[in-house]
Simulated assay, not measured.
Amino acid sequence: MSTSSTETNTLNHPVVSRDTWLAERKTLLAQEKELTRLRDRIAGERRALPWVHVEKNYVFDTPEGKRSLADLFEGRRQLMVQHFMFGPGWEQGCPSCSFMADHTDGMQIHLEHRDISFVAVSRATLPEIARFHSRMGWKFKWVSSNGSDFNYDFHVSFKPEDRVDGTVHYNYGMVEFPAEEAPGISLFYKDSEGRIFHTYSTYGRGVEVMIGTYSMLDLAPKGRDERDTFYKMEWMRHHDRYETQAVFTPAPVAHACCSDKA
Rank of each mutant, 00 (worst) to 15 (best):
H198T: 06
T199Q: 11
T199D: 09
Y200P: 00
S201L: 01
T202Q: 04
T202K: 01
Y203R: 06
Y203V: 04
G204V: 02
R205A: 01
G206R: 07
G206F: 07
G206E: 13
V207Y: 00
V207C: 03
E208R: 10
E208H: 13
V209L: 12
V209Q: 07
V209N: 10
M210T: 02
I211H: 03
I211P: 00
I211Q: 05
I211E: 01
G212F: 02
G212S: 08
T213M: 03
T213Y: 04
T213C: 00
T213W: 07
Y214R: 11
Y214D: 14
S215K: 00
S215T: 11
S215P: 08
S215G: 10
M216L: 12
M216N: 00
M216K: 08
M216P: 00
M216H: 02
M216G: 01
L217G: 07
L217H: 13
D218L: 01
D218P: 00
L219P: 10
A220M: 14
P221M: 08
P221K: 08
P221L: 04
K222I: 15
K222Q: 13
G223Q: 03
G223S: 11
G223D: 03
R224T: 05
R224H: 01
R224F: 02
R224V: 01
D225A: 08
D225M: 09
D225S: 13
D225E: 09
E226N: 11
E226R: 06
R227V: 00
R227A: 03
D228Q: 11
T229M: 08
T229Q: 06
T229A: 08
F230K: 00
Y231P: 00
Y231T: 10
K232C: 00
M233K: 05
M233D: 14
M233P: 00
M233A: 07
E234S: 11
E234R: 14
E234M: 09
E234Y: 10
E234G: 03
W235R: 15
R237Q: 15
R237Y: 14
R237F: 11
R237K: 15
H238K: 14
H238Q: 15
H238C: 15
